[in-house]
């Protein structure tokens, strides 16, 4: 072994400082909350508020994951994103959202379109959502 190895001994350890959560900007129109929605679309939003994130006690809407709801006839389309690409709850959450939309009065069928742009960031959490997260112990 070389003499250089001793450089690792006795020094002050440096810890990883990567705890910086970038806030980011809020794209126009987001977070979408269903504010101003009417009729069947409003009914869908109401049901979507009941879908909870699998990891934290916050609704998918308050977390800012839902980008839009449209209803044509009795078919609802929900556009949503996920917080990160490797989300292990992707199918689970997507199916919960689809079923919630389908359970709204006036909706017979629903599908969910997953989009990755604009990118989700923590600024898309609604004020109610931030309160929920703080209560849960997450600092936002």
């Amino acid at each position: 072994m070389s003499e250089d190895v001793s450089e690792f001994d006795g020094g002050t350890p440096e810890y990883c400082t990567y705890t910086d959560y970038e806030a980011g900007n809020t794209p126009d129109g987001l977070p979408a909350t269903g504010d101003g929605a009417t009729g069947v679309e409003a009914a869908v939003w109401e049901r979507l508020y009941e879908v909870e994130d699998p990891e934290m006690p916050i609704s998918a809407v308050d977390l800012g994951l839902i980008y839009g709801v449209t209803v044509e006839g009795s078919h609802a389309t929900v556009t949503m994103t996920l917080t990160y690409t490797g989300c292990p709850a992707r199918d689970y959450l997507r199916e919960d959202v689809r079923r919630a939309a389908e359970s709204a009065d006036g909706v017979d069928t629903a599908d969910v379109e997953l989009v990755w742009s604009p990118e989700w960031n923590v600024e898309m959490v609604t004020d109610d959502g931030k309160a929920d997260l703080r209560e849960f112990g997450v600092s936002v």
């Binding site: 990567y18 690409t85 490797g86 989009v115 990755w116 742009s117 990118e119």
Partner: peptide, 16 residues
Amino acid sequence: ADRVGKVKGEETYHRE
């Protein structure tokens, strides 16, 4: 193109 931003954002710390 729509997916690149999300992926790139997650790559930064890989390089760090």
